[in-house]
Design a protein around this nucleic acid. Structure first.
Lengths: 207, 207
DNA sequence: CCTCCAATGTTGCCAACGTCAACATCAGAG
DNA sequence: CTCTGATGTTGACGTTGGCAACATTGGAGG
């Protein structure tokens, strides 16, 4: 927004891009959303950003590193959505269900992105520490909410992390089944979510 | 290398293989297990079976078709394991938990295979009808068990399919989280499964 | 203002891959 | 024994990820 005013600006695209890393990431995300993970090719990304095919390697070690960055961004967004749902919902019982819905909505609205985060596209062993941290952060949002509910004696006093994992597995399961087309009938995901939360509460609420 | 068919390696490797389709499938499965889905190349499969790279195309339309066949086989095996656990466990309350354990064990023991079944490697739309049928069959094992428990008034009388989907989502969630390395600590999967079933029962048991 | 350098972007090139087309071989029906 | 459809092979092509060598640039130090 504040370019230096020296000299005549050239209509020609400059050699250096400015913020190529960001642009590549955005384009990768858009491509994944539009054509799926398989549709992502480094050459196409470069072309669409208006840069040569290998420019990407100045910002990402390889294709997997790009996908890892995409996954990191996904976990960041997810955490943000979860926290927003929890806080906007009043940090209470209903807000907890809101979080669950937000989680599944994120997955269903961004299936390919979600798959990059969980589908084993990133190195299973020797995981990127930043990715691990960001994933942990999203999970922590769930743990925090549960801890608050436990404090208010709304939920059982079991090990918080264990309870959180239980809830996480449930919403993650619903989300992935929905994404993979195992729940085809329209409204099936919503119906399942409603039932799941009803039964979940019976299972983990303080009696 | 002699392209001649008189190699002494096996009893006669004639021009025609005999049951190439089966052999290709088995080799594909072994490769996937050993090197992951990404490590699967048609050329390597052919070479390892002792056949040329394109022989595969007489038995599978393309790579996706091969993966679909792998997924079909996976669902068949999974259903079998589930049914076995249910029946061997006495078709009762404990047997139901056995089924859940068998499910997660299958996934954790065959992570790559499980990913082929659920990871979006097969066509999301226009799914192979045989694949859909086989997946439905595995799910049906769960539905049947639940229905039996409902008949014996062990479980709530809710819509059986809905309940089954709930349970499915839960075990599927635990399984995929475990596979993707989100539950790293040794024993975390087992601990979660134990807790999950305890809470699940509280949620869906007949009061 | 000039010079030089490290960061950034480009072109040439390669091996591996999936897949098609044309050809080779075989098993079994007639 | 012959013919034919099924099965397997060879050659080739376009695409992809990635390396190496080269080009361009903004900016720091003189």
């Amino acid at each position: 927004m504040t370019p230096s005013t020296r000299g005549a600006r050239k209509p020609r695209r400059p050699y250096h891009h400015g913020n190529l890393r960001r642009a590549l990431l955005d384009e990768a995300l858009a491509t994944i959303r539009a054509e799926g993970v398989d549709g992502l090719t480094l050459r196409a990304i470069g072309a669409r950003v208006g840069v040569s095919r290998t420019a990407l390697y100045r910002h990402f070690a390889d294709k997997r590193a790009l996908l890892t960055a995409v996954a990191i961004e996904g976990f960041r967004t997810l955490r943000q959505q979860l926290v927003t749902a929890w806080e906007a919902g009043g940090r209470g019982d209903a807000a907890f269900q809101s979080m669950g819905l937000a989680y599944v909505r994120f997955a269903v609205a961004n299936p390919s992105h979600y798959r990059v985060m969980f589908g084993g596209f990133v190195d299973p062993k020797a995981r990127d520490p930043e990715l691990a941290a960001e994933a942990e952060g999203a999970f922590q949002a769930l743990v925090d909410a549960l801890a608050a509910l436990q404090r208010d004696a709304v939920m059982r006093g079991d090990d918080t992390v264990l309870m959180a994992r239980y809830v996480w597995a449930l919403v993650h399961g619903v989300a992935t089944l929905g994404i993979d087309g195992q729940l085809r009938e329209p409204g099936a995901v919503e119906e399942l979510m409603r039932y799941a939360f009803e039964r979940l509460r019976t299972g983990i609420a303080a009696n």
